[in-house]
Simulated assay, not measured.
Amino acid sequence: MKFIKKYIKATVAVIGLVLFSACTDEIDLKIPYPNDITFNELTLGRFTYDIPSAPFEVGDSKSGVITVNVNNSGVDYSGFALSNKNFRSYPWDLSPDFAPEGGLTPDQVQESINTTAFSVYTNRVNTTENYLVGNTTGDNAYFTLAEPGIVEHVLVANTSYNYLLASYGSILSEDVDPVTQEYLLTGGKRSNPGIANDDTNFYGVFTLPGIDGTLRTIRLSGTELLAKYEVGDPIGKEAGITAGEDARSTFIASNPDSTSEEQQAVYDAAYNVAYNDAFEAATDSIHKGYVKLTIEGSLSGSVTGTIDVYLAIRPNVDPAYPEYSYILNDWRNVDLTSLGTVDKVLFKMSSDYVDNEGKMVYPSLFCLDGIRLQ
């Protein structure tokens, strides 16, 4: 009997040891300790940015190693720059109300624009320290993995440049031109967005040139209104004129002694109702306004999959998610596991707000951080 008890105890001990060993191996394999690539080990002055002269390697044996691409001609860049700026408002020195006496040189204007172009837009003060600013021109915004693997997720965000242009446009005041959908340089003064200050001495009209160097870039919601106006206005006018003339004729027949002012009032009322009804009917299906980041994975030159992330979108633009309506104002975690095993991740941007040549009107810029490799 004692022998049996000892045997049972010994057997249980051996089984327990085997199970403990097996469980330990499984945990090591399936739950690796997360170690994101954050770029914080790279040296960068506070509230500054830097465009590297060549592709650079980041990461280590714990996080994995990637090579970040950059194409820097010395004049312009595509690919990725490094930044830790977090300026979220219109540049003060570009405002006609706060510009320095004598104005700015072209280089000073560009540097003021860069204050927003190389800043991440976040709801509160950014806490991620260093991050990348990607320029997707020429398909140069990509990173490669030292060893093929799965990218668990990345963090993406808007630059302040894109956020401000998509939210308000190149001009910000209290008044909008209904035809062009541009805020007016001669409009009323208002506070600079992102700055909590009720002192009206700091109210003004603010500007931020678009990538074409002009102040013609408009807010994203305005692009939808312009698209509707282009289609609906001639149809609405035709319907309005017909309804107005019919209403005036009927009114005159019933009221031969009526004044021209009374007749015009009847015309105007009928015109407005018919115009609005025809306009709505003609434009009900027109939905416009998005800025999209497409993330593409590839392995040995073959695409493994793509993931779309809206950096800005208007209601009903995406049929699958018609309720989407936002301009991204913070970091967003994007799961990339569906791309599978990859050795390269490429970022592209697109928008339905384009110029006559089909090029994006907004800058092809975005922010990237927190890359986690499995």
Rank of each mutant, 00 (worst) to 15 (best):
W92N: 03
S89K: 01
R219Y: 14
S325P: 07
E57Y: 03
K6F: 10
Y168F: 15
V231I: 14
T128Y: 10
L215K: 01
G74H: 04
T337D: 09
E357N: 13
Y90K: 06
F56I: 06
R248Y: 03
T242W: 03
T180A: 12
K62F: 11
M1L: 14
V342T: 04
N69E: 10
G64H: 07
I113L: 02
V231C: 05
T43S: 15
D257H: 09
L132I: 05
G59D: 08
S338T: 15
Y49N: 10
V58S: 10
P256Q: 02
P34A: 13
A10D: 11
A196N: 07
A117T: 00
L155E: 07
I307K: 14
I150E: 10
P363A: 09
T128D: 13
Y131M: 11
E262P: 01
I235C: 00
G134N: 11
A227R: 00
Y161N: 03
A247S: 11
L328M: 11
I113N: 01
R46P: 05
A22Q: 09
E323Y: 08
E182P: 04
I195Y: 03
L17W: 09
M360L: 14
L132G: 05
P52Q: 12
K6G: 14
I195D: 05
E357I: 06
S61Y: 03
S95A: 09
S112I: 01
D60T: 12
Y163Q: 13
V120I: 14
F143E: 06
Q264H: 11
L293W: 00
D97E: 02
G187T: 08
D28V: 14
T207F: 02
K292M: 13
V133N: 07
V12E: 13
G370C: 07
K85Y: 00
K30W: 05
E57I: 08
A269L: 15
G103S: 04
Q110C: 06
N135P: 02
I8Y: 04
Y362T: 10
L184W: 05
A117W: 01
M349C: 03
F47N: 15
S254Y: 07
P315W: 11
T159W: 09
K9N: 14
L104M: 02
G188L: 11
N333S: 15
F98H: 08
G169C: 11
S254A: 15
K2V: 13
P322G: 09
G134I: 08
